[in-house]
Each structure stands twice: as C-alpha cells, then as structure tokens.
Simulated assay, not measured.
Amino acid sequence: MGKPPVILIVEDEPLVRMGAVDTITEAGFEVIEAGNADEAIAVLERRTDIHLVFTDIHMPGSMDGLRLAHFVRHRWPPVKIIATSGHARIAEADLPEGGRFLPKPYATHEVIGAIRELVGVGS
C-alpha cells in the first residue's frame, strides 16, 4: 500500500481545526495544519506532496480562504481545493475550477466523501 494522500487543513479556530484533523486522519489521510493563509503558503512552498487544501473562508491574515484557493490554483494547479464557511455561502463558480464548497456545520461523511472524490481515493 502506498503513502496516503496529504491534506492541508487551513483553519484559524483551533478547536474546529483539531476536529477536522481528527476526522480526516481517522479516514486514513496524512494531515498537515495551518492557522492561516500565510502558514498554508509556507507549507506548500516547503512540501511537494500536498494533494488537497481544506480551507475555511473567513480567516485573519493577508488573505482569506477564497483568495487562498485562487492563489493555490494559480501557483500549484494540481492541488485540489475544498472551502468551507459557517458564515458565507459561496457558489462553486466563485471558487477556482474544480473547487468545492461545504457549508459549516458539515457532516463528517460529506468532508471525507469530497476529499476521496477529489484526490481519487476509494472508500
């Protein structure tokens, strides 16, 4: 069996991030955490094995999750993107091509299903 896909979780709320990390790790993925877009970009610049970025939309820092999604798509085109928010409702047309939006609160099976579909991993 090969190495599991690597998922970068970008979430500024520590408890929400911890829950997402636990859920996605339990589903068999390797997980890396970032608290904002700047940290996420630093991770992406250091690592070439990130398969998907799972980002909150509303975050402090130099850019929000929507801007981060577009930046990632432009700079690292193979990296898949899932954006989430409990405040905004984003149309998939607002995301980079192929990006997904999941409203909070999201169900575990929705997140895992979307990740598996985007990175091409069966259940």
Results as ranks from 00 to 15, higher is better:
residue 56 D to C: 06
residue 86 G to D: 06
residue 27 A to W: 07
residue 76 W to I: 08
residue 101 F to I: 04
residue 45 E to M: 12
residue 20 A to D: 10
residue 114 A to R: 06
residue 116 R to A: 01
residue 95 L to R: 06
residue 52 L to K: 02
residue 114 A to Q: 10
residue 41 I to W: 01
residue 109 H to W: 09
residue 20 A to Y: 05
residue 32 I to K: 00
residue 29 F to D: 00
residue 104 K to I: 09
residue 100 R to H: 07
residue 91 A to D: 15
residue 40 A to F: 01
residue 91 A to V: 09
residue 15 L to P: 06
residue 19 G to H: 04
residue 110 E to Y: 03
residue 123 S to I: 10
residue 19 G to S: 07
residue 73 R to G: 08
residue 42 A to D: 12
residue 102 L to H: 10
residue 25 T to S: 14
residue 3 K to S: 15
residue 59 M to R: 07
residue 48 T to P: 07
residue 23 T to L: 15
residue 91 A to T: 15
residue 29 F to I: 08
residue 2 G to V: 13
residue 25 T to M: 02
residue 114 A to I: 05
residue 34 A to E: 00
residue 21 V to D: 00
residue 102 L to C: 10
residue 71 F to D: 08
residue 11 E to R: 04
residue 72 V to T: 05
residue 23 T to W: 08
residue 4 P to R: 04
residue 10 V to D: 00
residue 60 P to N: 13
residue 19 G to I: 08
residue 24 I to Y: 01
residue 26 E to D: 15
residue 114 A to K: 05
residue 94 D to Q: 15
residue 17 R to K: 13
residue 26 E to A: 15
residue 51 H to T: 09
residue 21 V to W: 04
residue 26 E to C: 12
residue 37 A to L: 06
residue 22 D to Q: 10
residue 110 E to G: 04
residue 23 T to I: 14
residue 31 V to I: 09
residue 71 F to T: 14
